[in-house]
């Protein structure tokens, strides 16, 4: 898995194709929108989804923590799918979370899904977290000074390829702000062209789509449209498969 370096507010950040952001100089790893216990939240409403979502999410996070060995882990909000999500954590998963807090500083930035500190989980809970030139908050503030790292919108981008579009969660960034993809196993996405996201990047920017081993990078024009190749280069786009 090859991470991509970018520069924001004079600092070098690494974007990992696994969906986390690393600030190497500070030994900090940020992850956003874990939405833990989304499965049980849906079960309450009568949708019995496969119950391994928390496990799958933490498995992936653990892999990335072993890879980057950060001193600080910032969870950028919506770490739990709902207010009492932490109460429903199976004991073994709660244990895993608390073990993270034993090896590094664990910061829970609060989000709209989890406006209160997660009950029983180690670590500190804050509304925003500032470090160096960066402010880590759940939801972007229009007009914030450069150096804002946010989550919340679950950005994804759809790229026309041969005869089909491929949609993937992505990082979105201009030089001022980084919006992180949602990390949770059951988190969907919002198209980067949606005004909710596009208005936060008024001069366009760049989307980094998550891939298996690397990121795929596309410029975004004003309005969030990915700058893709001229259709003349892609003969199959016109008839579009299906029939």
């Amino acid at each position: 898995m090859t991470a991509a370096p970018i520069h924001v507010a004079g600092e070098r950040l690494m974007l990992d194709p696994g969906g986390v952001l690393i600030w190497p100089a500070a030994g900090l790893l940020a992850v956003s929108d874990l939405h833990l216990e989304k499965g049980t939240a849906f079960a309450k409403r009568g949708m019995l989804l496969p119950p391994w979502d928390t496990q799958a999410t933490l498995d992936r996070l653990h892999f990335l923590l072993r890879k980057w060995r950060p001193q600080t882990v910032v969870a950028l909000g919506d770490s739990f799918h709902d207010r009492d999500g932490a109460d429903r954590l199976p004991a073994v998963e709660l244990d895993r979370i608390n073990r993270i807090a034993e090896t590094c500083r664990l910061v829970w930035v609060l989000g709209n899904h989890d406006p209160a500190p997660p009950a029983g989980c180690a670590g500190e809970a804050v509304a925003t977290f500032s470090a160096g030139p960066f402010v880590f908050r759940h939801e972007a503030e229009p007009g914030a000074p450069p150096g804002e790292i946010v989550g919340h919108h679950h950005p994804k981008a759809a790229i026309p390829t041969r005869g089909t579009t491929v949609a993937r969660p992505c990082f979105v960034t201009d030089t001022r702000r980084v919006m992180m993809p949602a990390f949770g196993a059951y988190t969907g996405g919002l198209d980067v062209r949606d005004p909710a996201i596009a208005r936060l990047f008024p001069r366009g920017g760049r989307a980094f789509l998550l891939g298996k081993d690397r990121l795929f990078s596309f410029a975004l024009t004003r309005g969030g449209n990915p700058l893709t190749a001229d259709r003349g280069n892609m003969p199959s786009v016109r008839t579009l498969g299906g029939g």
Binding site: T161, R162, F218, A229
Partner: peptide, 14 residues
Amino acid sequence: EDALLAEAEALVAE
């Protein structure tokens, strides 16, 4: 899909 994305990315770059 990754191969398709890589191709699209390379095309744009070109």
